[in-house]
């Protein structure tokens, strides 16, 4: 806490940040991200795209698990539902991509009511298992509903053209993902600083007190489910477009674990944490592969053949390490560093 903090008006008190440097650095970062596709090679660019898409999904899960404290092991279910909603409306029925994106949000949101409503009374492990079951049921439904989804054959998806602007090139598609990521981040931060976000956090921290404050637990848990599923579904559509092919195999259960790992590594209940966690978790397998490849070519080969298995081991490892040594995640570490910095040497 800086001693010089002196707020001028109540408007500033409810602002996202009252710090000019924060706005300035955010603006610089956005400009850098817009410029990035022109500088990066296609290999590096693919990581940027994945980070942006994964970030949207992580922010979605953050609303349910981070803010509201409802653990979901089945978030891949919303991801795949969103991807199919987009693919079916746009690729199969030839509707405009805007409609596809809307469907990618709304269909998972409706699906979340189906899984959310019966799990309102469940907590912790029971809820986690219910959501897990949901994601497997969704897969079965998709495989069975062949007329709509082509079953196991999947649906190929083209990069969209929206209002006459083509997002076909990697550069343009990066910009599209960047747009979605920024909008999602603002939406999340706005929710958090409003009545709705406070209700979510109240339910997480003390549900009895929350109810005494007049918060309708059932309604707000469903709001959290719906909002979370909507955002996650959009991420699913983007991922499907990126893969240019939507199938059940494209959305393995590992993605649910990856999303949880992101939140734990970043710091549960923080939008900034979700962003930092996304960057770390997306780059981690690649960084590990690179490190090992310095030592032997065999390790490198192992990484390309057993990628999934090694990824799940890595995620498990970082989850354990963070829970043990840095339970508040990267955001917690960042706050500690900043406090040390502000108070150094003995600012007061």
């Amino acid at each position: 806490m800086r001693s010089g903090d002196f707020k001028q008006s109540y408007g500033e008190l409810v602002a996202l940040t009252d710090s000019r440097p924060v706005w300035l650095w955010s603006a610089i970062l956005v400009v850098a991200l817009i410029a990035a596709p022109y500088m990066l090679n296609s290999y590096a660019l693919s990581f940027l795209i994945i980070i942006l898409i994964t970030g949207v999904g992580a922010l979605g899960l953050n609303i349910l698990t981070g803010y509201t404290g409802l653990i979901s092991l089945g978030h891949v279910g919303f991801l795949v539902t969103g991807a199919y909603a987009y693919a079916v409306t746009v690729s199969k029925y030839g509707m405009p991509p805007i409609v596809g994106f809307l469907a990618a949000g709304i269909v998972p949101a409706l699906a979340s009511l189906v899984v959310g409503a019966p799990s309102l009374r469940l907590k912790g492990l029971y809820l986690a298992i219910t959501t897990l079951a949901f994601s497997f049921i969704i897969n079965t439904v998709i495989l069975e509903a062949r007329t709509l989804t082509n079953g196991a054959r999947g649906i190929s998806v083209q990069r969209p053209e929206i209002f006459g602007v083509s997002f076909d090139s990697d550069t343009a598609f990066t910009h599209l993902c960047l747009g979605f990521a920024i909008v999602t981040l603002f939406a999340t931060l706005n929710i958090r600083r409003s009545r709705v976000g406070r209700a979510f956090v109240a339910i997480r921290d003390n549900d009895i007190a929350a109810r005494v404050m007049g918060i309708n637990l059932h309604a707000y848990k469903l709001f959290a489910f719906v909002t979370s599923a909507f955002i996650t579904g959009i991420a699913g559509a983007l991922y499907g477009i990126y893969l240019s092919f939507v199938s059940v195999e494209g959305f393995p259960f590992l993605l649910s674990i990856e999303a949880l790992a992101i939140l734990i590594v970043g710091g549960l209940g923080s939008a900034l944490g979700a962003v930092l966690g996304t960057i770390l978790i997306v780059l981690l397998p690649e960084a590990t592969r690179f490190t090992f490849s310095l030592f032997s070519a065999q390790m490198d080969a192992l990484f390309s053949t057993g990628a999934q298995e090694l990824k799940s081991m890595l995620y498990g490892l970082v989850i354990i390490l963070f829970l043990r040594f840095q339970p508040r995640g990267l955001v917690g570490a960042w706050h500690d560093i900043r406090r040390t910095w502000v108070n150094w040497p003995l600012r007061y």
């Binding site: 929710i191 409003s194 709705v196 976000g197 406070r198 209700a199 956090v201 929350a210 404050m213 918060i215």
Partner: peptide
């Protein structure tokens, strides 16, 4: 949080 019942914003308003 104590002001909850005196505020009206929906999820969409909040976003």
């Amino acid at each position: 949080t104590g002001r909850h019942t005196h505020l009206r914003s929906s999820v969409i308003d909040a976003v």
